[in-house]
């Protein structure tokens, strides 16, 4: 790590003024991603602003809309095991518990989870070119070992994936991100929060430097009857997803009223397809219909030397997970395949 100064703040406004729009001043919450990146000299800081004491951003409240607001500073573990979340948003709970390890979930915060950076090996290796770490230097992954990389929505500038599990569920649930910055407060729909790599792979998301995530809103609809999270990876726990799927189904009289399918591990942001979700509307929840939806989601997928297998894997994972959603009790710890 480079040498930096350190300060603790107890309100969001203090955090904003301590950061002061300066890119070398960094917020630290759980520290599980930032401290790691600092140790590798991928991130450098002049000052760390510790936001953990901000009590106003560490609560869970029921909203008048019927939804729930979860504080940015709540830990991932406290979220996953909160009785309101377990009962109303079990999809979110399962997705969180499929990520990282128990120790890391005890430290990691909700805000930090949204802001975590890619696990592309070349991004972590400062001796190699990487447009995300060093804009304009090239992308070592495109012609390199790209087993964990993107198959949807990538650009030739960067084929990294966003590694979060929790955010895949938040995308499926149509969450919203509440933000406060020097210019006041604003709200970003979850789909608008993370970005595709495009021509600006160094920018992961639409939070401006100096802005703070204060909380995340979950809409009333939680898909608590028919939901499932499936995570496929090289080892069965404590590992990032090759492909993950969050499914929420609203089924009435044997017919799908609404379907949500979000993918993780395949793109620079959690991936959804309106076309596939519309296709499932008013259809029966059958393997054939889920296969059709999977084909629609993956129709523009493009693989590279080492990750083409992900295209077929993702299709099968979608079908499998939609079937698991019909019988949520079948789910195993760690979002392993069941049924």
């Amino acid at each position: 790590m480079n040498n930096f100064s350190y300060t603790k703040v107890s309100t969001t406004d203090q955090a904003i003024s301590q950061i002061d729009g300066d890119i070398r001043n960094k917020i630290v919450a759980g520290g599980t991603n930032l401290n790691d990146l600092l140790k590798y000299f991928i991130t450098k800081a002049d000052k760390l602003v510790d936001i953990n004491p901000i009590a106003e951003n560490n609560s869970i409240i029921r909203l008048e809309t019927g939804g729930v607001r979860i504080g940015a500073l709540h830990t991932n573990a406290d979220m996953a095991y909160d009785p309101i979340i377990e009962e109303r948003y079990p999809l979110l709970s399962k997705a969180i518990l499929a990520g990282a390890s128990a120790q890391i979930r005890n430290m990691a915060t909700n805000g930090g989870n949204l802001m975590q950076r890619t696990r592309c090996y070349y991004f972590y290796d400062i001796t190699t070119p990487c447009n995300k770490r060093d804009p304009g230097s090239g992308c070592a992954a495109i012609t390199g070992y790209n087993r964990i990389h993107a198959i949807l929505g990538q650009s030739e500038n960067c084929i990294a994936v966003f590694p979060s599990d929790m955010c895949v569920a938040l995308a499926a649930l149509n969450a919203a991100v509440n933000i406060k910055g020097p210019e006041g407060e604003r709200v970003l729909a979850f789909a608008e929060f993370h970005r595709l790599s495009g021509d600006t792979p160094h920018i992961d998301n639409n939070l401006k430097h100096g802005e703070i995530i204060t909380s995340i809103d979950l809409p009333a609809k939680g898909f608590e009857k028919n939901y499932s999270y499936l995570k496929l990876r090289d080892r069965s726990s404590y590992s990032f997803a090759l492909v993950s799927v969050a499914t929420g189904l609203d089924i009435e009289n044997g017919i799908i009223k609404e379907a949500r399918i979000a993918l993780g591990g395949v793109a620079h942001k959690p991936w959804r397809s309106t076309e596939a979700e519309d296709f499932l509307k008013a259809k029966e929840p059958t393997r054939i219909n889920f296969s059709e939806a999977a084909a629609i989601i993956l129709k523009d997928a493009k693989g590279y030397e080492h990750n083409s297998f992900k295209i077929e894997l993702a299709k099968r994972a979608i079908v499998r997970n939609c079937l698991m959603a019909l019988n949520p009790e079948s789910q195993r710890p760690g979002a392993k395949p069941s049924l």
């Binding site: 350190y6 630290v28 520290g31 599980t32 510790d50 430290m107």
Partner: peptide
């Protein structure tokens, strides 16, 4: 892994000052 304020955490990913 150690136990801080009753919870197991990773001491390598946090700072002493925190």
């Amino acid at each position: 892994t150690i136990i801080v304020d009753g919870k197991r955490i990773l001491s390598c990913l946090t700072l002493g000052v925190m």
